[in-house]
Write a protein that binds this DNA or RNA. Structure first.
Length: 643
RNA sequence: CGGGCUGUGGCGCAGCUUGGUAGCGCGCUUGAAUGGGGUUCAAGAGGCCGUAGGUUCAAAUCCUAUCAGCCCGACCA
């Protein structure tokens, strides 16, 4: 009871107290005490406005469906493409105000708050301290980091009344680095971690899939500060594990994949991705050794095909020769025409890197494709783009027959799939002609060589040679080893043990709350509707009263009050609807435990209780219903909470 | 931003080709019956057809512009 008293000190502490309960450290008795202690004065289970205490939901912990704000739909709105989107609209979870801008209705908001509670618990467990930074930022800190100019129109900008440039922070490296330089002076303060859960606005070009890709969204973003890269490297796995635990608790399986650092910068980044066909990211996965990467950065053994292409190293001694290839303006046509393997050709492409006048001649083996993300990263530029046919003409290049041979005026960038030990077929830069026996190094110069070939299904894994698999996924969260990208630019230094001034080494870690909710629904539904994991379900129990008889209604009311009193979150369907409507809505809304009170259930001894994911109900005696249901809740919770 | 498509009561749609002043299903309201898987009957409420111009005696319908939204690409939690 002392424990309960101390837990009741504040609403915030109270929420974390409940989380302790979830992991089984508080007893059920204690929880009941907490409830009666907190609510004894104004507690009325029949009043939907009663103060809510359960699992950090903060609002009402109980609800009569007849009073619920929102409605379920029988038919699916036509805009729907993804299951989670359809379910959200049919259950009245969200409502769209504009493209990619949604209101969260009561059920969704309860679930969001539970997801946030899970995130808080895991962040706190690895030393995170919750803060809240401004959404509206002055331009100057973004100018300091350089991102004011680097980031395009996806960042919303405006001027305040005195004409000062402002923006809506779409991520918080700049404000948090500003905090770091104000408050971190010494190595003694490091490492440390802060996080926040906050609404972000990103003016994405295209919103889609309900909450999967929106413009306004809730993000949990965390930032860690370290004395050196080594310390960051040792902390990083803790964050990754926390991310995996968060997703597991929410009933969303994720894979951790290598990813592009994108606009964040830094050295290493991972994404935590929920694998689903309707995802928008493409993953390259090795079923044998576990290599996993976003296609944007995925590597593979791009020399394996050479062996199969049956090229002979000594062919490099054969002199280059021009051959007539009428109308054969693609690798496939030329290879077919000359009876050669496409892998024995060089594909020549012309790319511009962002902000540069002069194009690059980009070479890759004929059977491979350029991964533009990898190419841009290799060239250390934000973006690359193919030259247009007109531009090619203006450079004197012949589309379909382009060649590295005789084009010395360009910087030649070769993919690592082009080996100097072999000879190839290449364009002759003349219509209807190709060269054969083209030897890199002998017949043309390579200025830069790197890996920017695109991995495909079946390509051999760079680690173990196993054919790679391609899957689609939704990126739920990401982690970045930023290094000193921001601390250096913004002068966030600390004094190290030896007295020298060093830039703070940083990591940043983002996770989309609404997107995780979308993934919860993607993963946990069936043909009838949602099947919430109990950890994030808006309510634990969906109570149905069937029949108009006074006896049944009285019994249902009684059960409702008793469950609520026992600290169970109950959604009570007290509407005057037919059995079919009520059952279908219960399946659609998908609360984990369904309890039915009816003439029939009373006759057979009590309440009919069914788990959403089970098919058969069981009859439970009304005498000990709270205890039986509480035990079911415990069992359900243990299915999702790690350890 | 490029390509494809759609805007008609809260939701799903028909009507548009061949102009004549708006209809169906679900939902909503009222009443009655029913009461274990979207039950039945009856009576209602609700839309100037995205917006603005134009053509016409007459426009949801034809023309032009514009806005919004959806889907496929380039970007990201």
């Amino acid at each position: 009871m002392g424990q309960a008293n101390s837990i009741c000190q504040s609403a915030e502490a109270f929420c974390s107290g409940l989380l302790v309960f979830h992991t089984g450290k508080l007893t059920l008795e204690c929880l009941k005490d907490i409830i009666s202690l907190t609510l004894k004065a104004k507690f009325d289970p029949a009043d939907p406005r009663s103060f809510g205490i359960i699992a950090g939901t903060g609002g009402t912990y109980t609800m009569r469906l007849s009073k619920s704000f929102g409605r379920t739909l029988r038919e699916q709105p036509s805009e729907v493409e993804m299951p989670s989107h359809g379910l959200m609209l049919r259950t009245g979870l969200v409502s769209k105000l504009a493209a990619g801008i949604y209101s969260y209705m009561p059920f969704a908001w309860r679930s969001i708050k539970k997801i946030e509670a899970v995130m808080r618990r895991e962040m706190d467990a690895i030393g995170g301290q919750e803060i809240n930074m401004p959404v509206v930022n002055p331009a100057d800190i973004w100018q300091e980091s350089g991102r004011w100019n680097e980031i395009g129109p996806e960042m919303a900008r405006f001027k305040d009344r005195s004409g000062r440039d402002m923006c809506l922070a779409m991520t918080h490296e700049e404000p948090v680095t500003d905090l770091a330089r104000r408050f971190i002076d010494s190595y003694r303060q490091l490492p440390c971690v802060v996080y926040q859960i906050q609404t972000k606005f990103r003016d994405e070009p295209r919103a889609r899939g309900g909450l999967v890709r929106v413009r306004e969204f809730i993000m949990k973003d965390a930032y860690s500060f370290h004395v050196d890269q080594e310390d960051l490297t040792s902390y990083y796995p803790d964050m990754c594990r926390a991310y995996e635990r968060i997703c597991q608790t929410c009933g969303v399986p994720v894979v951790k994949v290598l990813s592009d650092v994108g606009m964040m910068g830094g050295s290493l980044a991972h994404e935590f991705t929920y694998v689903t066909d309707s995802g928008e990211d493409t993953l390259i996965l090795c079923p044998n050794c576990g290599y996993a990467a976003n296609r944007e950065v995925a590597v593979f053994d791009n020399n394996a095909a050479l062996k199969e292409a049956d090229l002979k190293p000594d062919e490099t001694r054969v002199p280059i020769e021009k051959v007539h290839t009428p109308g054969k303006n693609s690798i496939a046509l030329v290879s077919g025409y000359l009876g050669a393997n496409p892998a024995s050709s060089i594909k020549t492409m012309v790319y511009f890197s962002q902000g540069e006048e002069k194009p690059f001649l980009v070479l890759i083996r004929g059977d491979l494709d350029v991964n533009e993300r990898k190419l841009a990263n290799f060239l250390n530029t934000a973006e690359v783009g193919l030259a247009s046919p007109d531009e090619l003409k203006s450079f004197g290049l012949v589309q379909g027959f382009m060649s590295p041979v005789g084009n010395e005026q360009f910087t030649v960038v070769a993919d690592s799939s082009i080996s100097p030990n072999y000879s190839y077929i290449a364009g002759a830069n003349e219509i209807d002609y190709h060269f054969v026996n083209v030897a890199p190094g002998r017949d043309f110069r390579i200025d830069l060589a790197g890996d920017f070939s695109a991995a495909r299904e079946g390509d051999p894994c760079a680690e173990c040679g196993t054919p790679l698999a391609v899957k689609r996924g939704i990126e739920v969260g990401n982690t970045f080893m930023l290094g000193i990208r921001y601390s250096q630019a913004m002068g966030a230094d600390f004094q190290s043990e030896d007295g020298s001034l060093k830039p703070i080494v940083m990591g940043c870690y983002g996770m989309g709350v609404g997107r995780l909710l979308a993934c919860v629904l993607e993963e946990n539904h069936d043909g009838k509707g949602i099947a919430w994991p109990i950890t994030v379900a808006p309510y634990q129990v969906h109570l149905i009263c069937l029949g108009a008889s006074e006896r049944v209604q009285k019994a249902a009311e009684e059960v409702y009050k008793r469950l609520v009193k026992a600290g169970i979150e109950v959604l009570y369907d007290d509407r005057d609807e037919s059995a079919g409507v009520k059952f279908n809505d219960a399946d659609l809304l998908g609360m984990p435990i369904r309890i039915t009170i009816s003439q029939r259930s009373l006759k057979s001894g009590g309440a009919e209780v069914k788990l959403r994911h089970d098919t058969e109900p069981t009859i439970m005696s009304l005498d000990i219903l709270e205890d039986s249901v509480s035990q079911m809740i415990e069992e359900e919770l243990s299915r999702f909470i790690p350890e």
